[in-house]
């Protein structure tokens, strides 16, 4: 509750509300998730972020990585469009959820502390967030 109040105070000090950022307001609700970033899946252009965005990585790198993975999988014969990518290191999970839309898709990317995160729950949460972010 205290954290929410602080966010509201901070937001009212800004001159204008960023609609994309407002759409991410629920993104940090999953235990262990420390930062969430919303970027363009093709260009990597940053649209919004909440929490520790630096932990999530730069938009261009995220887009390039996801694009490479999609291309390679396609060349290997995989059918269908890429939905999500999870990269796990010793200390963190990095979850990328593709957000389809009328234009080029977006990427909703989260960084989560590994020892505080239930990966299945976090992925479920990110999938739900991806559906909600543009509605």
């Amino acid at each position: 509750m205290m954290l929410k109040l602080t966010c509201l105070i901070v937001r009212s000090e800004r001159s204008q509300v960023n609609a994309a950022e407002a759409a991410l307001s629920g993104a940090l609700a999953s235990p262990g998730v420390v930062g969430v970033r919303l970027v363009d899946a093709v260009t990597g252009l940053h649209y919004a972020a909440v929490g520790d965005a630096s932990a999530v990585g730069q938009g261009e790198e995220l887009a390039e990585t996801v694009g490479l993975i999609a291309d390679r999988l396609n060349q290997a014969g995989a059918v269908g469009e890429l939905e999500s990518v999870v990269v796990t290191s010793t200390r963190s999970h990095h979850i990328t959820q593709v957000v389809p839309r009328g234009q080029d898709p977006l990427l909703l990317c989260a960084a989560a502390d590994r020892d505080r995160t239930n990966l299945a729950l976090a992925m479920r949460h990110m999938a739900d967030q991806a559906k909600a972010v543009l509605t």
């Binding site: 960023n18 407002a22 252009l45 977006l106």
Partner: peptide, 15 residues
Amino acid sequence: ISAAELEIVCVGALY
């Protein structure tokens, strides 16, 4: 369209 999606389209077009 949602406000968020419209904002994203406008930002993308600008860049």
